[in-house]
Amino acid sequence: MEHKFDSDIKENKEYTETNKKKVGRLCFVAAFTSPTFSGRVASELLLATRALELPVSASDRKTYLHTKDFYYAPYITKVLERPDSGRFRLWVSLLNDLPEKIEKGKMLVVTAFDPFSYDKKRVVALKNAVKVWVPSEAHLKACLKEGLAAEKIEVFPVPVNTRKFHPRVVCPDNLKPQEGVFRFILSASPINRKGIEEVLYAYIKEFKPNEKVELLIKLTHYPNLKKNLAFEIQDLKKKTGALNKMFAKVRIITEIMPDKEYAGLLASSDAYIYAGKTLSSSITVKEAMACALPVITHQNAAEVFGLQNEYAYIVPAETKMAKPETIYSQSSEMAVLEIDKQELAKAMRSAFNNPAKNSKMGLKAQRFIKTLPDWKDFASKISTVVKNR
């Protein structure tokens, strides 16, 4: 069904405030050209609105991982060409990337942050939002602790598009592991808070060069040394370049790829590792689980993401203080989590030594993902709020 608002756009007509209110147009504000929480969640939600009676527009924000030639669906391209106006604006972003001042009565927010270590002022600023969706009970408790009204906040775990992410997706030939090789995979940007260095340490200490094993790190990019960003791992390329000469195989992929290829990369792997020093959403973890991968992670992530021992290897982590600006741009000294590297190595060895058990855990992970609400359910929640205002 075509809304009058959409047909008027094609004719380049102007709109009165009365028309906008009548149709309740919603403008998505997100980093669509970024393979992050903001871009991935906003894209899936926007695609899910196609089946709803909800006129939409979109505004693309350029953030840290803005990619000029980023691939997204043709429908999103079409929506981004519309005027980025609307009665309400739906911000989809991590807490630190939201505007510091939130306009009262105009904004809906889908956000995530570390529920154990966060900027209190930014959480308090959410009071002005019409509605806030967070991914876990831990996030909800943090919001309530800072005085947000319970009726304004709703927990909606980040869904997974299981039509895209499943174990039958074919991996591109040039990205497949060698036959008989056990592949660990993690997906991250090259920043300190992702725990990449801890994973590398555990892996090269545990596995020998002659073992049929591979650690695949799907990076968004290598650090830009000219920018010298304190929160990036500046010498990551140098470190990983030297590894394969002396240690078990490490493979780095830095290209931005369509979801189908990334899903194939996951489906070709045997276990997913999440060692984040800060927590936010669980989107990469759940996409891996949808592809039938068990997760190796620490206890805090398991608690927030709702992971159980039947499909996750859960290891300890300890709290440490990070220096200013090493976690986020302009971040102050803050508490972060560091996974126990020795226990991480043991968990990786356990997965490697017990492939049959590991596969069963992966199937249980996939079954768990299938029990969760999907993107259409989430979009319907948002649509209901907009239509009832």
Rank of each mutant, 00 (worst) to 15 (best):
V250W: 07
E333C: 13
K68P: 08
P99V: 14
Q366P: 07
D8K: 10
T254W: 05
I76C: 11
I185L: 05
E343G: 10
A242H: 07
R389M: 15
A292L: 06
A267V: 04
K239T: 14
Y313G: 03
S380Q: 09
G362K: 00
R389V: 12
Q178S: 15
N210G: 04
P167S: 09
A73V: 13
V315Y: 02
F352C: 07
L47Q: 03
R122T: 04
A30P: 09
A271P: 00
D97Q: 11
R61V: 15
E154N: 07
E81S: 15
L293C: 03
A58T: 08
K164A: 10
E343H: 15
S329M: 14
K120S: 09
Q366C: 10
R163Y: 13
Y201I: 14
A138E: 09
K10A: 13
S331P: 02
V295Q: 00
I196K: 00
I233L: 15
A263M: 06
A248L: 08
V250L: 09
A73M: 13
K376M: 07
L293A: 05
K364W: 01
Y222Q: 01
E137W: 07
N96K: 10
I9H: 01
Y201P: 02
Y262T: 10
T319L: 14
K277W: 13
A230R: 10
D377A: 08
H166W: 00
K346T: 07
R40K: 15
K370P: 02
L148F: 10
S332I: 15
I369D: 00
T326L: 09
H3F: 14
S383L: 06
G24M: 11
V336E: 09
V160F: 00
Y15D: 03
T63F: 13
